[in-house]
Simulated assay, not measured.
Amino acid sequence: MMVHFLLLGALTSASVVALGALRTFISTKTKSTPVMLLFVAAIIGVGLMTLTSQAELLTIIGTSVATIALFKLEGIAMRACILLNSLCWLINNFYLGSIGGTAVEFTFVIINLYSIYKLYSASPKKSTAI
């Protein structure tokens, strides 16, 4: 995806997606708060330095939220944050005219909604009776 965004001239999207890929790998190895904060700072810093359009702010926001989710959350809360990330990237990809990127993110949104639904359905039901 990084090369794809570079070819579209979207340097912020390319930079943020590369950091996001590294972040995802690292988050499987550690849940360290300082490491998480380092990634959030890098995503925001690199993202703002390379910003070429307001739509790319969404990639910075979404990827930062997803970073916190991958390091600190689980279950439905994590997937809700990842869903927000996918929606941010979906809008960005649509704005850039990336048909493939839009299709990928749309697929992620559908899969994430399905996962949230399955997790919610499998959770123990709380009685609303008093």
Rank of each mutant, 00 (worst) to 15 (best):
W89D: 08
N112P: 09
T30N: 07
V35F: 02
L113E: 10
F5H: 13
T12I: 06
L96V: 03
N85P: 02
M36I: 03
A80V: 12
I82N: 09
T24Q: 13
H4G: 08
F108L: 14
M36N: 01
M49D: 07
F71D: 08
S53M: 02
I26W: 05
H4M: 13
A41M: 00
A55C: 02
L83F: 11
G45L: 00
L96A: 09
F106Q: 07
S27L: 06
L57G: 09
A42H: 01
S121R: 13
E74C: 09
E74I: 04
G20A: 03
F25S: 12
P124H: 09
I110G: 11
I116G: 00
I68T: 08
N93Y: 02
A10V: 07
A41Q: 00
K126F: 03
T52P: 05
T52W: 10
G75Y: 05
H4Q: 14
E105V: 05
G45Y: 01
I110M: 15
F25D: 06
K29P: 05
V35G: 00
V17M: 13
M78F: 07
T67A: 12
I130L: 13
I82L: 15
L58Y: 01
I111G: 11
A10G: 04
A10K: 14
Y95K: 05
S115E: 12
L57W: 13
V3C: 09
L119C: 05
S64G: 10
G45P: 06
C81I: 02
L22R: 00
V35E: 02
Q54D: 15
T12E: 05
T107I: 11
R79L: 14
G100W: 11
S86W: 03
L57M: 12
I60Y: 00
V35D: 01
S32H: 09
L6H: 04
A18S: 14
I99L: 14
S32I: 06
V65T: 04
L11C: 10
V16C: 04
Y95A: 12
L73R: 09
T67P: 05
G20V: 03
